[in-house]
Simulated scan of single mutants.
Amino acid sequence: MSEERTNHRLMILGAGVMGVGIAALGLGSGLPVTLVDVDEARLEQARRRIRRELKLARLMGALPDGAAPGELTTTTAAKDGAAATAVIEAVTELAEVKAAALAEVSALVAPGTPVVSNTSSIPIDELAASVARPQEFLGTHFMNPPYLIPTVEVIRGRRTGDPAEAALVSLLTALGRTPLVVADSPGFVTSRVLHPMINDAIRTVREGTAPAETVDALFESGLGHRTGPLRTADLIGLDNLADSLRVLHERTGDPGCEPDQLLLDKVRAGHFGRKTGRGFYDYGGNPS
């Protein structure tokens, strides 16, 4: 294992889709990972999902050749990961939940440890009020699945210091990712542009202009997108998409960001996309 990798020990808060994906990326890159969640049953499920994702990532050639997998520790106590050299928070996309998790963990880790919120939309300066050392706090936006998409949006808040940014860039480099640094703003770049567009695509389906399959085909074969907006929504998670749109709507006032009723209906029915087996498409009832 390279010295670059051995210098990093990663703690991840949250064993949901993104927490599991980031953990799989870290482990597959040879880093030791402590995965923290309040629910032991969820951690057991996460261990199984991580094994599947690592197997898939290897089959797809998405991990470094010859890298011995890192050691995974799962726990319900954040203090068990206090020796980490970096923390990535990946809990649900609700500001109050993230703030509580960040407040706890930032008080546990040693000064100089970057604390990172993986968020698709919540401004970093807003969350910085909850951490012990705002100069060591910044954001990331990993795309799903993290082991397949090499680019990571890095969000620098007004109080983020240069050492914290350098430490995060070092970690992302060790993970084989390409960091692109942007300024802080609701939704940053990707979500501010993409999520309202997906919301518009959902609206066209609800209004009967075209079914989901046709909308996606037009974007894929007509505009050259790798996946259409509705398949992308299912991959993001419709619940996460709705939460992100609410953040954008509340903080920007853009009426185009108000979650469409069809999206809200699907979330209310528990149809969150690939992770539940059904969203705009049916995945056979089998969560991914």
Rank of each mutant, 00 (worst) to 15 (best):
K275M: 12
F280M: 12
D282Q: 02
H271I: 11
D265R: 13
P259W: 04
S121Y: 06
Y283N: 07
A67M: 13
L31K: 09
Q261P: 04
T74F: 07
R206S: 14
T113H: 04
S130K: 02
T75M: 14
G30C: 11
G19F: 07
T276K: 05
P196L: 08
G256F: 07
R58K: 13
T140E: 00
G285N: 13
L56C: 06
S244H: 03
A201Y: 03
V97G: 00
E40N: 12
A41G: 14
L238D: 06
N286H: 15
L94D: 15
G284R: 12
T113I: 08
T34L: 07
L171D: 01
G139S: 08
T74D: 09
A269I: 10
D260Y: 04
A210W: 00
R274S: 05
R156Q: 05
L180K: 13
E165W: 03
D184S: 00
L72M: 15
V152R: 03
R5L: 11
I12A: 05
L13K: 00
V131Q: 01
K79R: 15
L148P: 00
R268M: 12
H195Y: 13
P186M: 10
F142N: 00
E258H: 11
L194D: 07
G157V: 00
R9Q: 13
L59N: 11
G222P: 06
A174M: 12
F219S: 04
L27E: 05
T74K: 05
S120N: 14
S185R: 13
D239M: 06
N7H: 15
A24S: 15
A24K: 06
Y283V: 07
E136M: 06
I198A: 02
